[in-house]
Design a binder for these strands. Structure first.
Length: 608
DNA sequence: TATCTTTGTT
């Protein structure tokens, strides 16, 4: 009876029956405990002591060296975060079968310790000569996905081919998801195409792989295929597709997904409403986002609803309103969590609200939210960009855990804004040690050098990048046109609209010059002739997209452009003037935040 | 009579 309840997911019923059994004076045996422990691990009301009590009981029953009972104990300990106690049980086992090993491998994987998980896997095979089954490989595939290492992914795939787990839907799904998380979408797609049978998880896994790797447009064509195949999308599919809309910055696509939800009677629960708010904000439509947030009843809002809206206001530079929401959520009795503080601290950072940010950072202790490395990164960003580089560096040196790439990256970015190449070198050297293959940091440091006209150092970094085979990511700006997303890149000879866009830009340049505009050459980071600099500046991807927007959209309408990298300072100045000349609101989402240009000025007040 | 597995939010 207890087994029946447990296998049916009725955890508390199973535990209640177990308790009745104990009171009736019937002794549990080795068949009882695995189910009882499983129920303890799943029932949130069971608490940590229920399992510990059971552990004590089974020792008194002399069952502590039963293979099945021990395996169940390992899982239970792992489920409640006591991984070390689980490992102790595992280490004390006299014999271990494949399932025991898989249990430990899964425990590490679920605890987000992929290296330990893979170490156990290797140990099992090499030292014990145990052959993995499909369940083991699925767990190992998840671990590799967390690690993000393509080489390991290929080796697990080879393993999966050997065991024949790819005939299993679950196994195939795990391989597809693994490749997606390792950044190899082509392999994810191939593994997906070769599956004999596909379920909703297979489709979600492959869609999410495409979206996570920036191939949102491909995700949309796959989504069409999915609908044709007769597989019914579920709420998670909707979440994935909404993040695809956010990536592309397309409200129109977002509205389509919203309509799809209604047409297919998919319940728009709080999670989906939060995701919709997030999508609208990331597509530049803050008003719709705010409207949807206000439509959710005050009592209904969860911590994510508040976090999403605070982050949205923050990225649009409306720091004061973000702070206001942060206070209001407290009045409503919603406890801020670690993400609330990331959102509110970065909102302060974007708006230059230093004292307010410091107060929020101090609030964390009041709410007993741990000050994690990511929060320090926000503080370093906030202080550094405000010109308080020494204070920022002090924080880096005194923070309780070692600074990661996020912290050093924030400091390096601040050094570029402030033009401090000495401190920039310190940050960059740490970054080169932590992330030697990340091209962004080499580019950022060469930007710092270029701003100080240290062309020799710029050249050295370029050589270093070349020898490592690293490429500077290309700048792409996207704009919506007739329901399609058009991408602009400098020197993109395949773009059918390039002639129109270039021609319009020439006209715009003439117009701006007549208003006394001079290009800001300081943003060009090459050692080239001054006239060449003007030429380079005038054909930046964001300028091409804005020019295209002016031609193709109705007079007076807002032009919204999404750029993958940060906007350049000349484009920023130019857009202020263009918004005035052409009487247009121009909204630019860059890699970091939103800029709303209107009547000659920008919502960021030139603080970015 | 039994123990291990896949997609995801800010």
């Amino acid at each position: 009876m207890i087994r029946a309840y447990t296998n049916n997911g009725q955890w508390s019923d199973a535990l209640a029956l177990y308790s009745l059994m104990r009171r009736s004076g019937v002794w549990p045996n080795n068949y009882t405990y695995p189910f009882v422990l499983k129920a303890c691990g799943h029932d949130p009301s069971a608490g940590i002591w229920s399992g510990k009590t059971v552990h004590g009981e089974l020792i008194r029953n002399g069952l502590e060296s039963d293979l099945y009972v021990e395996a169940a104990l390992v899982i239970w300990y792992a489920k409640c975060g006591e991984l070390n106690d689980g490992r102790k049980v595992f280490d004390g086992m006299t014999s271990r079968d494949l399932v025991c090993w898989t249990t430990m491998i899964t425990a590490y994987e679920q605890a987000e310790l992929p290296r330990e998980s893979l170490m156990m896997f290797g140990f099992m095979q090499q030292q014990q000569g145990i052959l993995a089954d499909s369940v083991t490989v699925v767990s190992v595939a998840s671990a590799v996905g967390q690690l993000g290492n393509v080489k390991s992914a290929r080796s697990v795939h080879a393993h999966a081919l050997c065991c024949g787990i790819l005939e299993d839907v679950c196994g195939g799904n795990a391989i597809v998801a693994m490749y997606g998380k390792c950044g190899d979408v082509e392999s994810a797609r191939m593994a997906f195409d070769r599956m004999e049978e596909r379920d909703i998880i297979s489709w979600n896994a492959v869609l999410s792989g495409f979206v996570q790797n920036g191939q949102a447009r491909e995700a949309f064509s796959l989504f069409e295929l999915m609908k044709e195949s007769g597989c019914r999308p579920n709420p998670l599919t909707a979440l994935i597709m909404l993040s695809a809309c956010s990536f592309l910055g397309s409200c129109q696509l977002g509205m389509k997904i919203q309509g799809f939800l209604v047409d297919n009677k998919i319940t728009v629960d709080l999670t989906l409403r939060n995701a919709l708010i997030d999508m609208y904000a990331k597509c530049g439509d803050l008003e719709t986002a705010m409207g949807m947030f206000n439509d959710i009843g005050v009592r209904e809002r969860d911590v994510t609803s508040w976090n999403v809206m605070i982050a949205a206001l923050g990225t649009h530079g409306r720091g004061k309103e973000a702070l206001d929401l942060y206070l209001r959520m407290q009045e409503e009795g919603v406890r801020p969590n670690h993400i609330t503080f990331v959102s509110v601290l970065s909102a302060c950072s974007h708006a230059g609200l230093i004292d307010e940010g410091k107060n929020c950072f101090a609030d964390m202790q009041r709410f007993s939210v741990k000050q994690e490395v990511k929060h320090y990164a926000c503080m370093v960003d906030m202080l550094g960009r405000a010109g308080l580089l020494n204070e920022a560096f002090d924080l880096v040196r005194t923070m309780p855990s070692p600074p990661n790439d996020g912290v050093w990256g924030a400091l390096l970015l601040a050094c570029r804004v402030q033009g401090n190449s000495e401190l920039g070198e310190v940050a960059a050297n740490n970054l080169f040690l932590l992330e030697p293959e990340h091209p962004g940091y080499y580019v950022l440091m060469s930007n710092v050098y270029a701003a100080s006209r240290k062309w020799h150092e710029v050249g050295n970094l370029r050589t270093e990048m070349k020898s490592r085979g690293l490429m500077k990511p290309a700048a792409v700006s996207m704009i919506e046109y007739r329901g399609e997303i058009v991408g602009f890149q400098t020197a993109d000879w395949l773009n059918p609209f390039r002639h129109e866009a270039y021609k319009k830009l020439e006209g715009i340049a003439v117009e701006m010059k007549s208003r006394g505009y001079f290009p800001d050459r300081s943003c060009v980071l090459h050692d080239v002739e001054e006239e060449d600099k003007d030429h380079i500046l005038n054909y930046h991807s964001e300028k091409l997209a804005v020019a295209f927007g002016i031609i193709k959209s109705e007079a007076g309408s807002t032009i919204t452009v999404m750029k993958n990298l940060r906007i350049c300072c000349d484009c920023h100045s130019a857009f202020k003037l263009i918004s005035d000349i052409y009487r247009r609101r121009i909204v630019v989402r860059d890699g970091n935040r939103f800029h709303h240009f209107e009547a000659g000025s920008c919502s960021c007040n030139d603080y970015w």
